[in-house]
Simulated assay, not measured.
Amino acid sequence: MASSSDHDHHHHDLEHPPPDDWKNSGVRVIPSDSLDGNTPQTPGMDRKAAINFARVGAQKLWAGTVHIHANAKTGAHHHGHLESVIYVLKGKARMRWGDKLQFTAEAGPGDFIYVPPWVPHQEINASEDEKLECVLMRSDSEAVAVNLPDVEPIEAPETVKWIDPTHPE
């Protein structure tokens, strides 16, 4: 087992340092007014990419924004093998999921939403007069959005209260 000093030494002694000494291949700031709308879209929402392979060379994640207009909802869709995390900045999100979108939960500003791979889901703006603004992160740099026009939603979805398995009470 390597000691912590071996581990630290390994980090400082990179085999192939970048030719520009990290200036252009290090940290990147993506200004909010330069996000890229050229990403798979789902009816009812506006997705924009900030971090992906094409823009910054990201290998293992995708990040961007999602806006849903007041009183609007997306079509049912899933994201294939990707895991997704949605962070609500502003507004009230209502998520529906399942083969018939039979489950529902709501999230507000500061809340995180996790969507596992392959789960059919729909995002709904639960506010009648405020735009829903979210940050979206995915587990791979590829953008996958599979729209499911044949999913027939049941009309009274079952509310699911999420219980943290590490804090059941």
Rank of each mutant, 00 (worst) to 15 (best):
V146W: 06
E142L: 05
P31S: 08
G91I: 03
K92I: 11
S139K: 04
S141R: 04
E169T: 12
A50W: 04
P117Y: 13
V146E: 05
H167A: 13
E155L: 07
S25K: 08
S5C: 11
P18Y: 02
I30A: 06
V119Y: 09
V151D: 06
P117V: 10
S139H: 02
K131G: 02
L132F: 06
S84A: 13
D21K: 14
S3Q: 15
A58M: 00
H10Q: 08
A54Y: 11
Q122E: 10
P31W: 02
T74I: 04
P43L: 09
V146M: 09
E169C: 10
A93C: 10
L82P: 05
F53S: 15
A63C: 09
G37Q: 14
N125A: 01
V29L: 14
H167N: 14
R138E: 06
A63L: 07
A49P: 09
K48A: 02
A72N: 06
V135W: 05
A63K: 01
A145E: 12
C134G: 03
G98F: 00
W118K: 08
G75F: 00
Q122C: 10
E169A: 15
E130I: 08
H9N: 13
A2H: 15
D129L: 06
A126T: 09
A54L: 15
P40H: 08
T39R: 15
P18F: 07
E123G: 05
N24R: 12
E83P: 01
P18Q: 04
G91Q: 03
A58T: 02
D164L: 00
M45Q: 10
R138A: 07
Y114P: 10
L136P: 00
P120Q: 12
H10V: 04
D129G: 11
S4P: 14
S34T: 15
E128H: 14
L101M: 07
R28K: 14
P40Q: 09
E169R: 14
K48L: 07
W118S: 06
S84V: 03
M95L: 14
H121P: 00
M45K: 04
S84C: 07
Q102V: 00
S25M: 04
L148H: 06
N38D: 15
K100M: 10
P149F: 05
S139L: 03
G26A: 07
P157W: 01
A2Y: 15
T166Y: 14
S32G: 12
H69Y: 12
G44E: 00
H67V: 12
L148R: 03
D20A: 06
S84F: 05
A70F: 07
S4N: 15
D140V: 02
P31M: 00
D129T: 11
R94C: 03
I30C: 08
C134H: 00
A143Y: 05
H81W: 08
S5I: 15
H81D: 11
T42M: 10
H9E: 13
V66T: 01
V115S: 12
D8K: 11
A145W: 01
E106F: 03
R96Q: 13
P40T: 08
H16L: 04
L101E: 01
D21W: 05
I163S: 05
K161R: 15
A70T: 11
A126Y: 07
A107Y: 02
